[in-house]
Amino acid sequence: MSSILVVAEHRNQTLADVSYQVLSKGRQLADQAQMELLAAVAGVDIDAYAKELTRWADRVIIVNNDQLEEPLAEPYQKLIAHLIREIRPGIVLMGHSSFAMDLVPSLSVELGIPLVTDCVDIFWQNGDILVTRSIYNGKANASYSFAQSETILITGRVGEFPVEEGQRQGWIEEIEFAFEEECDYKKFEGYLEVEAAGVDITQAEVLVSVGRGIKEKKNLEIVEELARVLGGVVSCSRPVVDYGWLPSERQVGLSGKTVQPKLYLGLGISGAFQHVVGMKGARMTVAINKDAKAPIFSVANYGIVDDVLKVVPALVNKISELKGRTE
């Protein structure tokens, strides 16, 4: 194998965290196999990104093209296909972002190359690359090998690969790339940011966060009460937004907000990785869940295995009592 290519992703003048994460992993894999690590970044005004990337990559390929300014699947598919054909990397590595999810499946079909997405581990075994995926919603792991192929495509799970400081000083190479025709069947119309209409959960010191374990929208009341006595605010996991019980601005996790409160109190949240990724920066985590095996218990400092609807009212009372005593 010749090289590993990491395709970096950026939006809003920021390189995606997950790009750094897979880049670090890529560096490690390249070092282990004595391969060249390439990084590619495209768009306009990307010199700063390129410079960043040289700390990890041996070579950074930059493509200046305003059609690549936004992370959109169609133009990037054309670009990456082109790069693969030109560079012939052994592994193409990307973060498992919404961008990659829209892009890599069709890319793999277009080029006829194998793809494994959302990997939690990527490692060499007897000279072959193997990957591990988390399946059944985190309840099992599966490892995969690849059929013989000049290039393989891998996306790595967000938050799974620690960023190690880059020590390299790679060089930058600009490649000319032009689109033959514009994509007229799929028109990008812009972004819609969810506005925080009042409550900004990222600023809260205490988050009382609810999942589907609260069963009914009505039960938010007692949770609000708990948040009130703790001087915090209520946030939630994705199903709660899906059910329409809370607005999406309250959602913690991959598709919601990333939070770092002093206390994160997870109520009836099972702790799927998409959620955990948004809250693992909390200084103290407490989980209450009926299912003793819920993954949230492996990220929490304290846990109570019980029905939240039973514990929360009692907790409100106890906290009020303790507060009353000190006041």
Partner: peptide
């Protein structure tokens, strides 16, 4: 093009300190 090699249970991570008892106690 890809082959499933092996399935395992995920390694046990650190576990929360569990508080046990009736709701009042916990």
């Amino acid at each position: 093009m890809v082959k499933l090699e092996e399935m395992r249970l995920p390694p046990k991570g650190k576990e929360a300190e569990l508080i046990t008892g009736a709701p009042e106690e916990t």
